[in-house]
Write a protein that binds this DNA or RNA. Structure first.
Lengths: 249, 249
DNA sequence: GCGCGCATACTGATATTCCAGTTTCCCTGC
DNA sequence: GCAGGGAAACTGGAATATCAGTATGCGCGC
């Protein structure tokens, strides 16, 4: 028996359903960074045992969206500035590779499809009242399609895994800035479609690097929170760190 | 209560222990490609419930070492030629990035450490009777240290995840060829230490590409097995694909 | 002899239950 | 008023039992 959820989507397992729901909540912002997720409560809420929930959270932790400490809770990950910069270095490596392959093997139909997609993404980015999850989904799709058109399944998968994390950080404070209309993705696709692999790679590299800079800038307040957060564990940390008297001397 | 295993290593959880054991067995070759792993039997053998075993296998499936179909068994993954080529494309992207960073920021001490490591790796590679798991561990360590010296945790993690899979494929048929002594890793490290980032990147790119070519060549017989393997499921596949009579017309 | 169908013995998926470690917060003693 | 101790309520980890789908092998019918 398959279950149905809000959007009438069928999942092949309860774990897949839980994964999808939690991921969407994080990306939508319903679960803020640092917020604690209880497996029991979530399982009760979703009407399933907490085993599939546990499996889903494990997968999300593997992707870097969550962080958990044994027997002490799972929470939405608060990145450090090193995390964000490192993450974008990985993305740069993967997506530049994809851009290079794309420029070499993409068909005309695919190029047209991506051009249309880029227009929609840029259009949504300039609308301050656009649905956050909708924008992120479309943005992910654009980058995923580039990788798919590069005809390398392993690369698509790797990029897809990194994108969940990027999406989590992408929209933080985005609407607060009130940016004007941009053409960043249309410019990118134009370069990818020109046929010059080196130019495509350089275009993608700049795109990712500028994304990184904006992400670091927007996440700036959270870095302080992340640093402060450790303080709340001060007491237990002291407990843990206090060495046995015999070994201290 | 912590448990002990053969090598007297303590694990923080049963799942971590199971993960480590299964991973080692695959890399060592005790579990051949295509071999079916039963969670129940493995759990009994390891003296634990099959829940931590299940968790461990799930993680290995994430990393691409295993493949499972719901309710039909988990087996050691048999790659297609596309899998292998795609995998090395991802590795090329990541490790070239690491090489570039390494050339820019590594200290003299680190360079010396890696040179020594490279000598040991090349030395082991030329010994036909060397322990397979030992060689793979050392080889992984070399590449991991390059990433670590690049001062980017996210990149190190990404490379580490890809390496488990690469190791699985690396030793297949290695001893059968009877290669003479090589200096591939020493040459690589030399280029990385020269200080020229572009030259370092190019050196790593060539290293990965030549690894890919050798892997594809060695795995050649398995690609046929993988293609044949589907035949054993022909009957059930027919079952699945037969549409309900009412919908067929 | 060959192909199909069904019973059986597997597989993983899930629910329930219990256990051990962590965190929290109140309450006591100073 | 505040630091420290301790109990209670939380957390995730693991064990057991059960469910549902898949593969296989035997036997029946052609």
């Amino acid at each position: 028996m398959t279950r149905k959820v809000s959007a009438s989507v069928e999942y092949e397992s309860l774990a897949a359903e839980a994964y999808s729901i939690v991921r969407q909540r994080i990306l939508r912002g319903d679960l803020a960074m640092g917020q604690i997720i209880s497996r029991r409560k979530l399982a009760t809420e979703l009407g399933m045992s907490f085993l599939p929930v546990s499996e889903a959270l494990m997968k999300l932790e593997f992707e870097g969206l969550l962080e958990s400490r044994p027997r002490a809770g799972t929470r939405v990950r608060i990145p450090t500035v090193q995390d964000v910069q490192g993450h974008y270095i990985v993305r740069e490596a993967l997506e530049v590779q994809a851009a290079r392959l794309f420029a070499a093997v993409a068909t005309e139909d695919e190029k047209m499809e991506l051009t249309r997609l880029a227009i929609r993404v840029d259009s949504l980015a300039s609308q301050p009242d656009a649905d956050r999850y909708h924008y992120l989904s479309l943005h992910e799709k654009l980058h995923r399609r580039i990788a798919e058109c590069a005809r390398c399944g392993a690369l698509s998968e790797a990029i897809e895994k990194t994108h969940a994390l990027a999406s989590t950080w992408m929209c933080v404070g985005r609407h607060a800035e009130g940016q004007g209309p941009r053409r960043t993705h249309q410019d990118l696709i134009e370069k990818l479609c020109a046929g010059d692999t080196d130019a495509a790679a350089e275009g993608m590299r700049r795109h990712i690097v500028s994304s990184k800079d904006r992400a670091v800038q927007r996440l700036e307040p959270y870095f302080r929170i992340g640093a402060t957060r450790g303080a709340t564990y001060a007491r237990s940390a002291r407990k843990q760190m206090a060495p046995p008297a015999a070994l201290a001397s």
